[in-house]
Amino acid sequence: HMTFVALYDYVASGETDLSFKKGERLQIVNNTEGDWWLAHSLTTGRTGYIPSNYVAPSD
């Protein structure tokens, strides 16, 4: 899985979304859904959809 880092805080707007904090590391499970990607937080262990423009590839 690709690892990304959150650029901003995001508060989930629905049950399927994943809240995260700036700097949180996320594994992308599925990024074929356009602007919303299914991600797994390496910080909280939770999985949900995130806005793709809130994250950047982590080196």
Rank of each mutant, 00 (worst) to 15 (best):
H1G: 14
H1E: 12
H1V: 12
H1M: 12
H1A: 13
M2Q: 14
M2P: 13
T3S: 08
T3P: 06
T3G: 06
F4C: 09
F4Q: 03
F4K: 03
F4A: 06
F4E: 01
F4L: 07
V5K: 05
V5C: 06
V5D: 04
A6W: 00
L7M: 08
L7A: 04
L7W: 03
L7N: 04
L7E: 04
L7H: 03
L7D: 03
L7Y: 03
L7K: 06
Y8D: 06
Y8I: 06
Y8V: 07
Y8N: 06
Y8R: 09
D9K: 02
D9Y: 03
D9N: 07
Y10I: 02
Y10P: 00
Y10R: 05
Y10L: 03
V11G: 05
V11M: 10
V11L: 08
V11C: 12
V11D: 10
V11W: 10
V11T: 12
V11E: 13
A12F: 02
A12Y: 02
A12L: 02
A12N: 04
S13G: 09
S13D: 08
G14V: 10
G14E: 08
G14M: 10
G14T: 13
G14L: 09
E15G: 09
E15C: 11
E15R: 09
E15Y: 10
E15S: 12
T16I: 09
T16D: 14
T16H: 15
T16P: 05
T16A: 11
T16R: 13
T16Y: 15
T16V: 11
T16F: 15
D17I: 08
D17W: 08
D17M: 13
D17H: 14
D17G: 14
D17K: 12
D17R: 12
D17F: 15
L18C: 04
L18P: 05
S19G: 08
S19L: 06
S19H: 04
S19D: 07
F20W: 01
F20H: 01
F20M: 07
F20P: 00
F20K: 00
K21C: 10
K21A: 10
K21I: 09
K21W: 05
K21T: 10
K21V: 11
K22T: 07
K22A: 11
G23F: 04
G23E: 03
G23V: 00
E24V: 01
E24C: 03
E24Q: 04
E24Y: 01
E24T: 03
E24R: 00
E24W: 03
E24P: 00
R25S: 08
R25F: 15
R25H: 12
R25E: 10
L26P: 00
L26S: 00
L26Y: 01
L26T: 00
L26A: 00
Q27F: 15
Q27S: 10
Q27K: 14
Q27M: 15
I28D: 00
I28P: 09
I28Q: 03
I28K: 06
I28S: 04
I28R: 06
I28N: 04
V29A: 07
V29L: 15
V29F: 11
N30H: 09
N30P: 06
N30Y: 09
N30D: 15
N30G: 15
N30Q: 10
N30W: 10
N30E: 11
N31A: 14
N31R: 14
N31F: 14
T32W: 09
T32Y: 09
T32P: 09
T32L: 12
T32E: 12
T32G: 10
T32I: 11
E33Q: 15
E33D: 14
E33G: 13
E33N: 15
E33I: 13
E33W: 11
G34T: 14
G34V: 12
G34R: 13
G34Y: 08
G34E: 11
G34S: 14
G34H: 12
G34W: 09
D35Y: 15
D35L: 12
D35V: 11
D35S: 12
D35P: 11
W36I: 07
W36G: 02
W36T: 06
W36V: 06
W37N: 02
W37V: 08
W37A: 03
L38P: 02
L38F: 12
L38I: 07
L38D: 01
L38E: 05
L38K: 05
A39V: 12
A39Q: 00
H40K: 15
H40G: 03
S41W: 00
S41T: 02
L42S: 05
L42Y: 08
T43M: 11
T43G: 06
T43V: 13
T43P: 03
T43D: 15
T44Q: 06
T44F: 02
T44S: 12
T44R: 03
T44N: 06
G45C: 08
G45S: 06
G45W: 05
G45F: 07
G45M: 06
G45Q: 06
R46G: 08
R46P: 00
R46C: 08
R46D: 07
T47P: 01
T47G: 05
T47N: 07
T47I: 11
T47W: 13
G48Q: 01
G48N: 01
G48I: 01
Y49C: 09
Y49M: 11
Y49W: 15
Y49N: 05
Y49V: 06
I50E: 00
I50M: 02
I50R: 00
P51K: 06
P51N: 06
P51Q: 05
P51F: 04
P51L: 05
S52F: 08
S52Q: 07
S52C: 09
S52Y: 09
S52V: 07
S52A: 13
S52P: 07
N53S: 15
N53D: 09
N53R: 13
Y54S: 10
Y54L: 12
Y54G: 05
Y54N: 03
Y54A: 12
Y54Q: 05
Y54M: 11
Y54I: 06
V55W: 04
V55N: 03
V55L: 08
V55C: 05
A56M: 12
A56T: 13
A56L: 08
A56G: 10
P57T: 08
P57D: 06
P57W: 08
P57R: 08
S58H: 14
S58T: 13
S58G: 10
S58P: 10
S58N: 09
S58A: 14
S58Y: 14
D59A: 13
D59E: 14
D59L: 13
D59K: 10
D59Q: 12
D59T: 14
D59C: 13
D59M: 12
